[in-house]
Simulated assay, not measured.
Amino acid sequence: MPAGRSPVGRVTRGTTGANRLRRIDRWIARHPALRRAADPLVVDLGYGASGVTALELHARLARSRPDVEVLGLEIAPERVDRARAQLEDVRHGLTAFAPDARVSFARGGFEVPTPGGRHPAIVRAMNVLRQYDEHAVADAWREMSSRLAPGGLLVEGTCDELGRIATWAAVSCGGEPMTLTVSLRLAGLERPSIAAERLPKALIHRNVPGEPVHAFLTALDEEWLRAAAVSPFGPVHRWRTAMEALVAGGWPLRARSRWPLGEVTIGWESVAPLG
């Protein structure tokens, strides 16, 4: 970051949890924006009180892209210091992470500073916009995505503390939202609409009658309940049955191959806020 320039954004609560972002990480690992990137730099923006999520991100992405690099960015200097101390333990073989993991930590916010002005293939910004007003989201998206490489991706969303409920928006390098993904732990799931409390900030206040995202979550619940008849075959079979019914009902779902993981992805135009 240039001397004298302050990071853009606010300090998050920092409620980092090991393995919390596994659903998002595995989705990113399969995405063409990473697999086809000329420079596989991935930014973990707002990683929180511990650098563990950046280390986990690298470990998961390296399975599909061995040359991936992960840069963790945080606004609070003490969090950067703490993460760098953790990284020293990694380098000395004192953790389960690879000592030579291509991970680094620096201070930064929505301006996404990178060494040498490199343009990331992916910026992952989970649980960083929850404290913002809805009207601030578009500007934050534009600022973060403006740093992306052509064809790059901003992944912005929210998850619960255990990572069993997660939603995220995929935003283009031009700052335009493209898809919404809902990812749930299917075992013991009562209603998919439990995801409503973890929607991205752009949608969380729009879960009211008359808004498209409310209609989508309502349809998810209805088909999940109807699919209860096949629940003896397991929750994955029940989820697939519900997703097939949604498609038959006209919902343009994407990424069918991800359904067994408890995921559903839909084009942003189907859930975008009205007005």
Score class of each variant (00 low, 15 high):
residue 152 G to W: 01
residue 89 D to V: 11
residue 42 V to D: 03
residue 91 R to F: 03
residue 229 A to E: 15
residue 135 H to N: 12
residue 159 C to D: 07
residue 105 F to P: 05
residue 74 E to D: 14
residue 148 L to Q: 00
residue 267 G to M: 04
residue 65 R to F: 11
residue 125 A to T: 04
residue 152 G to H: 01
residue 29 A to P: 13
residue 178 M to P: 00
residue 22 R to P: 02
residue 143 E to P: 00
residue 42 V to G: 04
residue 210 G to N: 08
residue 208 V to G: 13
residue 220 L to T: 05
residue 70 V to C: 12
residue 92 H to N: 14
residue 25 D to V: 01
residue 128 V to K: 02
residue 172 S to H: 04
residue 84 R to Q: 13
residue 17 G to N: 14
residue 70 V to G: 08
residue 226 R to Y: 05
residue 2 P to T: 14
residue 52 V to W: 13
residue 44 D to N: 09
residue 31 H to N: 10
residue 61 L to Y: 10
residue 273 P to S: 05
residue 109 G to H: 07
residue 127 N to H: 06
residue 68 V to P: 05
residue 251 W to G: 02
residue 155 V to F: 00
residue 39 D to G: 01
residue 151 G to E: 02
residue 250 G to D: 09
residue 118 R to P: 03
residue 104 S to K: 13
residue 201 K to I: 00
residue 260 P to R: 04
residue 266 I to K: 04
residue 263 E to P: 00
residue 152 G to M: 03
residue 55 L to Y: 10
residue 208 V to R: 15
residue 58 H to G: 14
residue 165 I to K: 12
residue 16 T to E: 14
residue 224 W to D: 08
residue 245 A to I: 04
residue 95 T to V: 12
residue 121 A to L: 06
residue 79 R to Y: 09
residue 91 R to N: 06
residue 83 A to L: 03
residue 209 P to M: 08
residue 222 E to G: 09
residue 197 E to V: 06
residue 244 E to V: 14
residue 243 M to D: 09
residue 94 L to F: 11
residue 232 P to W: 05
residue 215 A to I: 03
residue 273 P to W: 04
residue 10 R to L: 08
residue 195 A to L: 03
residue 268 W to F: 07
residue 12 T to M: 12
residue 274 L to P: 00
residue 100 D to H: 15
residue 55 L to W: 13
residue 71 L to D: 03
residue 94 L to G: 08
residue 72 G to E: 12
residue 233 F to P: 13
residue 247 V to Q: 15
residue 49 A to R: 06
residue 191 R to H: 12
residue 34 L to A: 04
residue 196 A to D: 01
residue 58 H to Q: 15
residue 236 V to A: 14
residue 31 H to Y: 05
residue 79 R to L: 07
residue 217 L to D: 00
residue 206 R to H: 08
residue 147 R to C: 06
residue 248 A to R: 13
residue 212 P to L: 08
residue 208 V to K: 12
residue 160 D to P: 00
residue 17 G to I: 06
residue 214 H to Y: 15
residue 50 S to P: 09
